[in-house]
Structures are given as C-alpha cells and as structure tokens.
Design a protein around this nucleic acid. Sequence first.
DNA 1: TTGTATGCGTTATCAT
DNA 2: ATGATAACGCATACAA
Lengths: 343, 343
Amino acid sequence: MPINLKQLSEYLGLSQTTVSRALNNYPEVSEETRQRVKQAAAAHHYRPNARASALATGRARAIGHIIPVDSSDWFNPIFAEFIAGASATYSRHGYELLLRMARADEEAATYTEIAARKSVDGVIVHAPRINDPRIPLLRQLRLPFVIHGRDTADQGDYAWIDINNRRAFFRATKLLLDLGHVDIALINGGEAFTFAARRRSGYLDALQEAGITADKQLMFAGDLTEGNGYQAATALLQRSQRPSAFLVSSYMGALGVRRAIHNAGLTMGKDISVIIHDDDLAYFHNSGDVPQFTATRSSVKEAGTLAAEMLLAMIDQPTAAVPTRLLEANLILGASTGPWVRP
Amino acid sequence: MPINLKQLSEYLGLSQTTVSRALNNYPEVSEETRQRVKQAAAAHHYRPNARASALATGRARAIGHIIPVDSSDWFNPIFAEFIAGASATYSRHGYELLLRMARADEEAATYTEIAARKSVDGVIVHAPRINDPRIPLLRQLRLPFVIHGRDTADQGDYAWIDINNRRAFFRATKLLLDLGHVDIALINGGEAFTFAARRRSGYLDALQEAGITADKQLMFAGDLTEGNGYQAATALLQRSQRPSAFLVSSYMGALGVRRAIHNAGLTMGKDISVIIHDDDLAYFHNSGDVPQFTATRSSVKEAGTLAAEMLLAMIDQPTAAVPTRLLEANLILGASTGPWVRP
DNA sequence: TTGTATGCGTTATCAT
DNA sequence: ATGATAACGCATACAA
C-alpha cells in the first residue's frame, strides 16, 4: 500500500531526481511536470519516508521536549498545555514532537543521548532552575534550544520566552495591600525554579515598598498540587494571627486553598482574599462573568506556540541573533478578593 | 564531537560490520573484541544514528500517541498521566514517543500520514468512541495498535487495556443505594466515549436492580472539567427535589461539584454524598488517612505502562494473539459519603 | 529542464 | 570470528 519514490518515478516515467524536485518545489522543474507529479503523488498517497529524508538531509525535522519529573514522577498539567500549543506549530511546519520524561539525575544523559542519536533538531527546555546546568550542556552539544522561562545568573545569550513573573506578583501583592491586607501569605512553586523565585521577589518588593516586613512563616514553596495548597493553607489559617489574603502560584494549588478556607468555616472573597496565577488552562478555566478567582493571567498554551515558532526560526537561520520574548500577564478582577475585614 | 560507526571502526582497526555486531550483541563476536569495542564506544560516547538504523532495519523504534482534541483544543490531564506511564516503558526499551494532537476531522489523515512516513512502529489509540473508525483504519494501514479502552460493537479482535468501568460504577451506585440514597445524579464524560457509556450502564443496572426508575434529568454528559462539574451540580441542586448523591466520573469534575455543594450551603459527606472515579493522578491526589472522596480507583499511569508493554510485545511478535487486559478498580471509602438524611 | 551518480550511517547478506 | 559489499529511501552535486 505505501509507495516509495522509486516506484512513483517508475510509474511516471521520470527519474527519482525530477520527482523529488517537483515535490519539493524546486524552481527548475517545469510547471507541467510538477503538476503531473503532484497529482500522481496525491493519487498514490505518496509520503516521503521520514527516516530516509532525515538521513539524506541531516535534519530530523523533529523537536524534543524533555519533561523533568521528580521522584514522585508527576506530570504537571501546565506542561501538557504548553506542549499542546507547541504541537500545533510543529504540525503546521511538518515537524514532529518527541517527548521524554527524565529525572534530574538522568537529565544530562538524556539530552546527550538524543543529541548523539540525532533524533531531534532542537529542544525546548522546561522549568528552568537557578543556574541551570542544561544551558552549558546544550551549548556544548550544539543543540538549538529555547527555554520556557529564564535563568537568573549570567549565562550569556540564549533564547527564551517568559512572562514577567516579578511584575505580575508585584502588582497582585500591591492590589492586596491597597485593599488593606497586611498579613499576606504566598503559596509558591519550588523556589529552585526561576519562575517561583521571580514571583517571590515581586511579592517581597511590594511588601517592602509598603514598609511591611516579610514573614517567612507566611511563605510556602513546593509542588503546586491541590493537596499541597490545602495543607499549606490549613496550617496558615490555624495560626493565632492568621493571614487575611493568599497569593497562590497556580490554579491547582488554589483549589486546595479554597478547600481549606471552606473547611475553616470562612468565605473566600469576604473573610479571606485570594489571588492566583492563572495559566489559562483549558481544563481549569477561571472564567465566567466574574471569574471565580482574581488572577494574573497569561496563556501558557500561547507561550508554547510562540516558543515553537522561535525554535523553528532558529533552526532555519542558525546565524541570526537568539530571540527572546517577554510576555506581560493581565491582572483580572474576580470574586475572590475584597477589602480587609477585622477577623 | 559526535562520532559515527565508521570513525569508531577505523579507530579500533576493525570493520564496521564487526563493531556493529559487537555493539548489538551478536553471538558470533568474540568476547574479547566485544569488550574492546564496547569500551571504546562508551569512551567516545558513541550512539548509533537513530535515523540511519531505522532506515536500515525498517523499524522506527518509536511509538505514536495521537491525542484527540476537539475545537476547544483541550489537553486532558488524564492523557498526560497515561503518557507519563507509557513514556517510561519506551525509554526502558530504547523506543521514542511521538506526540501529535488531532481534531476529529484530521484524525484519519494524521494516522495515514504517520503510517506512510514510517515514523512509528505502532500507536496507542486514546479515548475510543463507540464504533470507532480508527480500528478499521489502523488495520488497513497495518499499523499495530493498542486501545486504551474498548469499543462496544463487533469490531473483531484487537488489542486493548481497560478498566471494568461498568462494574466500578455498578458497585459505586450500589453503595449509595445501600446508604439509603435514591436520587443519585451522574456527572459523566461525553457518552460517545465508550468509557462513559459503560459507566452509565453500570449506574443504570444498579438502579434497575433496586427497582428505581432512572431520571434523565439527573444525568450529565460532557467534558469532565471543573467548570462543567460546577455548572451541572449547581443546576441539579436547585431542583425542587434535589439529588442527595452524585456519582462523578473524574476528580477534576468532582472539584467543581464540591464547589457547587459548598456554594449551596451544604456539606459534602453529610447533606450530599459524592463518589468519584479516581484515576490516581499525581497532581490530584485523593489521599490522606481518610481520603477526601469516596472513589473507584485505578491508576491510569499504570495502565499507560501496561499498554506500552503490550504494544512493544506485539511489535516484537507480530504473529502472537492480540493481548487484552481488564483491570478492576478498587472501591475506596473516603469522607464524601454518608447515609441519606432528610433534606 | 531532466538525468546520473553519490552519499547519508546503519544493518544485513554473503563470503572467507 | 571477521570483512567486503549491498541495501534502506531519499536528496543533491554534477553532467548533459
């Protein structure tokens, strides 16, 4: 059923060369034969063998995504949504998406292996950590890459796409301060990740600007699961001087915070204010006339689309300057915030 | 930096053939040279070019996962977790994972294309629908496949792995009936999907056995998002004769149901009982000494691991009988169920 | 404008 | 036990 180039060219009475050129839109082939070739190819459902053309051209036409997994082997829905965005871009450009999961201790070996096997033409780096070792590694491997996020330290020029996490959390904190809140808790991602470190710094800067001393007891950092959000918020609400507001780094974590608030017999948006960061996940839509949560919002799927486009452009033009892109998050007012009230 | 077989063999003073055989554990190579070759390969970080060996062997050593996406382009966390399980199996066997998203109207073309391009040696079929056209298509394409789920109609023999959805929901419904509940709502996935149809049938069978007439008004079918769960439950709780129990097909949907119950001023586990199906997602753990939700539980990640193993075995032994596997879900008691109480 | 010949990096088929 | 040589299916430098 599958037909190859040789068979197709024999059928047409042309050389493989001409058929190949016609299909790849080389200018020197006559319009007439090009049409004839393309029609025959379509009629026979001819598709070039991806392995063979990769070998011949030296380009795999595939992009790798290596998802970091820790010992509990999780798969964060945010990665999934980012990848959904990137995937559409790859399909549009005839690229394929290779997915792997790797624990931190396998990470270097994994990148090295896919580079040596020439399985991909480039990779997306997920969840950058402070002073991330993947940056020098990928440079050494000469594998084009785009980071979803940024590193902090001086790692030289590299391609990245990120949202302005610091500014988003600065603005969110400021809004809570303006509403009269003073004891504001931060439920954040693991602060080895640069996104979480930047969000914390926005939070701290806003507090400092308001002359408030940050309280380490009010800051949680860890996996942003529903369970962790619930546990962290429950503990904080049991304190003698409980926080009146929560800043939560993800929708999933906020679902746990919401549960803790309810269980404590309190009302979100009245007794306790909550602002979340909303990645605009399709499966966890914070929508409605008045969204459930006040939120800093930025579509992670859109980020995936843009990251993929940046990477494909880099592969096409390896000499061009490395692209970077900073997206601003919107601050969306929802039903979860209100003025401070005496407990 | 990357070294190829030719260079490695020149360095060793051996032929490419011998080096290749040594690395691939052919028996005819002497143990001494095998050791020498393997050491040199390791020292030079040699990895066979995946494209070249795929071309030579005719095996891509890659498995495709085509995720169905509807117009709103979602990415269900359950797929993600299944893939996480499968991915580990592929890595262990030296296979790669190709990921694509396809809308229903692109589905046939997508499968046809990856088959024609010989990008993969087999595929996993996600989210089977009743009388799924992918089964005859994949047979025609001669592409080995394993279905995560089962079809209902007579499609002949094919490989699948599924949980006993009917039995799980039968047992869950029966538990609610035993607790005295009569008005039991079903918040289900889209019932074109076979998993949802089977769950509904378990629910209906249990009601019938108890002599209760099912009420279509108590059944919701759609995407199992938090928002849909919230909306469906909110509407049901506003009815004059509101349901006293909910059967919810996913954890995400149940989070919305929980929100609706709270918003209605009711208490889950007291006023309203809830049983969910728990796919044991790492990011949405229904754990604790007493889990939040009473649940039928089965690990979808484990299913991914098993599905991948089944598919690789089929590729290795194409003549063997097609494997099938039916997993039973556990019924786990949590805090969300209690005896019926007068409203 | 078309065709011939060669290479991409492996694995597989013959020899020896 | 090892080696020369021919595929695998495509793209391309070089010829015509």
